[in-house]
Amino acid sequence: MTVRHVAEYVLLVLGVGILALSAIGVLAMHSVYDRLHYVSTGSFGAALVCVAVTVRESFSLIGNKTLLIAFFLLISGPVLTHATARAARVRERGQWKVREGERVETLQR
């Protein structure tokens, strides 16, 4: 077993493990806002699986394609999370902005 095989298996096990836990997280969390955090970890897990494929196939057409997929997953994940959270707040409260009386901690710069 070469170093490359070890790296490939480590990335694959990590990626699949994170994906499985993310799926459980989506089911286990109580509110939509908490569940959305596990969608992000799912994208990261899937990206690790893509990197594992690239390590196995090297920078071939298949390897490059999986890297491209990983890139799209990592870029589109945050945008989808942001848009879904905003839509959830609009559905729940009529607007996404903080209303008077809603207790939200404000940090200072």
Binding site: L36, H37, Y38, S40, T41, F44, L74, I75, G77, P78, V79, T81, H82, A85, R86, R89, W96, K97, V98
Partner: peptide, 16 residues
């Protein structure tokens, strides 16, 4: 918004 939502523990809802 994109950078703030990149890591899993935090996501941005919007800029008021």
């Amino acid at each position: 918004k994109t950078a703030g939502s990149f890591a899993p523990n935090t996501y941005v809802v919007g800029v008021d």
